[in-house]
Nucleic acid binder design. Sequence first.
DNA 1: GGTATCCATTCTGTATACAGCGCCTGAAAA
DNA 2: TTTTCAGGCGCTGTATACAGAATGGATACC
Lengths: 256, 256
Amino acid sequence: MALSASADRDEERSPSQTVRAQLALRDLILGGELRPGDRISELPMVDRLGVSRTPVRLALVRLEEEGLLEAIPSGGFAVRSFSERDVFDAIEVRGALEGLAARLAAERGVPADDLLPIRDCLAELDAVVEQSHAGTDAFPAYVELNARFHRLLLDLADSPSVARQVERAATLPFASPSAFVKVQAELPEARTVLTVAQDHHRCVIDAIEGREGTRAEAIMREHARLASRNLRFALRNKAAFELIPGAALLRRRGRT
Amino acid sequence: MALSASADRDEERSPSQTVRAQLALRDLILGGELRPGDRISELPMVDRLGVSRTPVRLALVRLEEEGLLEAIPSGGFAVRSFSERDVFDAIEVRGALEGLAARLAAERGVPADDLLPIRDCLAELDAVVEQSHAGTDAFPAYVELNARFHRLLLDLADSPSVARQVERAATLPFASPSAFVKVQAELPEARTVLTVAQDHHRCVIDAIEGREGTRAEAIMREHARLASRNLRFALRNKAAFELIPGAALLRRRGRT
DNA sequence: GGTATCCATTCTGTATACAGCGCCTGAAAA
DNA sequence: TTTTCAGGCGCTGTATACAGAATGGATACC
């Protein structure tokens, strides 16, 4: 969901060929069918996607801006690869920007009514976390609600400039707020992390309501670091590693 | 300089038609010949730029990602307009990201040798600031050196993920580190600001060398706020306002 | 006089054709 | 056996043609 945020406005009506190509290519890349370093030639993609070169090319340009592809100096595009550090840093960037959003919301103040939707979301999350502790597989619901929470938080900042940058930062699949939820489920301390994450959610809203900017910012940064912790676990656990969205793009230490 | 950072890699050899179109369009927009809200039709641009529709279209897509254009729901693109808040927030975003870069550099540590280039740059800036106090018009040199300093600072963080986001944030002309230098020159307290800015430069390097992450981050944030101050001045001073890069894109309070 | 409707113009999205460049392969010579 | 050169293939960048849709203006009706 959060992955396609940047394209959402385009796909509302009838998905144009360009958007179709963009989504299809993204799936091919994230699914690992196109491996990091692979050059993506347009003509083969024409056959594979069933659209002409023009939309394919447009999609490639967009995916480059999105960060999944890199331009080859002699022309064309190749699938990018990411180091472990790249992923850690991307998470840190998202944390910094979400922290900024939370701080701005807190410092500038939010009308009480505007907090209602996110408080609803928080309550729903509470319920899901409860279910989860009861053993039910509530993760799909959690992912959805978590994504919504982060979106609503952005709304509170009411800042297009900040929102834009956060969205850009979260386009990379493993930098999205929900990227490591699946990994998290595999953790021995899964319940703890879930509880802590939800407490972050609660506290950041309290901080915003109380206009505590520094606190709001610190919480969101720490919140992002939960993802880093999950990442660290996933790097040491083969099964968990495969649960990272876009795992195919990551090169583990030692390989080029 | 910093403005074309994202396109630099493409323009190295012989500027392709697409790059040519992108640069030309950017100039038209920033120069105010294409006004905010204006739809940019492709065919007129074909005549105006002397290239065919394909490169024009590619350039439009890139300029949208860059933030200068917005997609029209029914198709095509229009020149974006920015509120005062948008500009403040864009500056704040850059500050947050440059702060992150500085903090990471400090926390992770930088080999002593890697500090040499930026210390050189700092010394050159010292000289220019000195000249400027002596009355010489040193602003072109200052702009160049200032841009270089900020680039070198990014290098210290040695983080592609962070660098990428900072560059993206700085694509908007008024969010670039050097955006308000010209405005600054018009300030009554121009010398003071210049002195303070240069002290920021010096202190952030010291902080990085001393691995004081929090301090390094705080300095870069405050450094960005100098731009906010300049902006505030420019909003109250017609002559200074025109010195903002991309001033044509800004809508002053009250107008749509 | 205002409003709704219809038509013509104009534009975008898409497909395709063409030229030039680069790269890779294969063969020949040292 | 290795290196170099030549040839061919594939690829990108660019231009252009075509179809469907939207927009704006003019006209007719209320």
